[in-house]
Amino acid sequence: MSNVTVINPNDFEQEVSAHKGTVLVDFFAQWCGPCKMIAPILDQLSTENDEIKIVKVDADEAQDLMVKFGIRGIPTLLLFKDGELAATKVGALSFTDLKAFVA
């Protein structure tokens, strides 16, 4: 069962910025083909690695966050460690590449 949670932009501070540990944030859209392709890969990672919290943010509802983090394309993955942005990837990744990105 997937441990990926969809959060709204108002919960970003609490769910991501204030979280102690690693959080992977997927900025996605319902209409985005590559976003749909990466969704099962994120689900798989969430079941195999319980040390990483994975959340999804609907880009269409999060324009302020998109501007804040300079996101111009989706899917965009942001990796946070103890509330600090550590890395960014744009585009769909394979499972192997995703595991290497969060390592």
Rank of each mutant, 00 (worst) to 15 (best):
D82E: 10
P9G: 01
A100E: 08
E51P: 00
F69S: 02
M37Q: 14
E51K: 12
E15S: 12
F80E: 08
G73Y: 12
I38G: 04
K36L: 15
S2M: 10
W31P: 00
C35A: 08
L24V: 11
L79N: 15
W31A: 08
V67Q: 08
C32K: 06
Q63M: 10
T47L: 12
G73I: 04
K53G: 04
L93K: 00
E84Y: 05
D60S: 09
L24P: 00
D26Y: 03
I7A: 02
T47A: 08
P75Y: 05
D64P: 05
Q44F: 13
A87H: 12
N49E: 11
G70S: 07
D26W: 02
G70R: 02
L98D: 07
N3H: 09
A59Q: 03
A39I: 07
D26I: 03
V57T: 01
N49S: 06
C35P: 00
L45Q: 05
A87L: 09
D50Y: 00
V55D: 00
V16A: 07
K20I: 08
L77Q: 06
F95R: 10
C32H: 04
E84A: 15
P34V: 04
D11Q: 13
A86D: 14
S2P: 15
I7C: 05
T96S: 11
A59P: 00
F27S: 01
K68C: 02
K20D: 07
D26E: 14
L98A: 11
A29G: 04
F27C: 02
F69T: 03
G33C: 06
K99E: 11
D97Y: 04
I41R: 06
